[in-house]
Amino acid sequence: MSIPTAAAAEPVIRVAGLHKAYGETRAVDGVSFEVQAGTIFGLLGPNGAGKTTTVEVLEGLREPDRGEVRVLGVDAVRDPDRLKPRIGVSLQTAALYPKLTVVEVLDLFRGFYHLGGRSTDELISLMDLGEKRTTRTQNLSGGQRQRLSVALALVNDPELVFLDEPTTGMDPAARRALWDVVLGLRSAGRTVLLTTHYLEEAEVLCDRVAIMDHGHILEEGTVEELVSRRFKERAVRFDTIDGLPEERLARMPGVASVKHEDGDTLLYTRDVAGTIGAVLDAAEGLGVEPANLGVRRATLEDVFLDLTGRALRD
């Protein structure tokens, strides 16, 4: 799976055969991947896929049942203390001292690392928390807490940043601002591993993504690769028409596969014009008009749907 051109440099993260079970639940069931320096890597998957478990093993916070985990050249399982000064972590649930203010929490965490890193003021302006400087964290909104949590992950200006669902609870403007911060980290040569269940987030940010479900990585690669590997076709979509049988749809010109999602019908086709014509004919035969008829390129969403048979956002 390693990329020949990058083979000389050791990857920043190398996970091989990672397993972690909680009783009967196999949270992570044989996960392997690599992350190269200076890239943004996305772990994508629905709730319960095993993303958090995987990330927290890499952060040295959970012990796996087995598997090899090297992060920044360090064995993250046996030697987490050597790793900690060099990484930044934002947990899925922002963990903050409720009675301390934004500035106090940042100053406290800065104090855990050797001098250097980023100044509190710099982080506050980076994460746009200026108005909340002296607000106790218990009085922050969900999005603000999340931003503070990301700021805390950056206090030591780490080589590698882990962001577990960093944009959950953020409004669209804040989300876009965070995307800029993450892209800025890459420009500065840092490596980022983020988890998300927002596909467009992965499409915008990630150099490579791994799609996870039920503790497995189903597919891994660049967004382009994942889409084109599966879909030479484009998708014709319309509101599902009752009485239009699956077999009939599958037999339409150019159609490679048929999916249903939330009341939509998706036809992946190599012959867009022919497919649309056939849909219109069929609808006319039933005496209806296809609603919201449209065409789009396949996206990660389609990849996910194709891989798992369900939409990512339930």
Partner: peptide
């Protein structure tokens, strides 16, 4: 419970 101990564990704090 607030995961503060876990977050601290991710720093070099011993």
């Amino acid at each position: 419970q607030k995961l503060i101990l876990k977050r601290l564990q991710a720093t070099p704090l011993r």
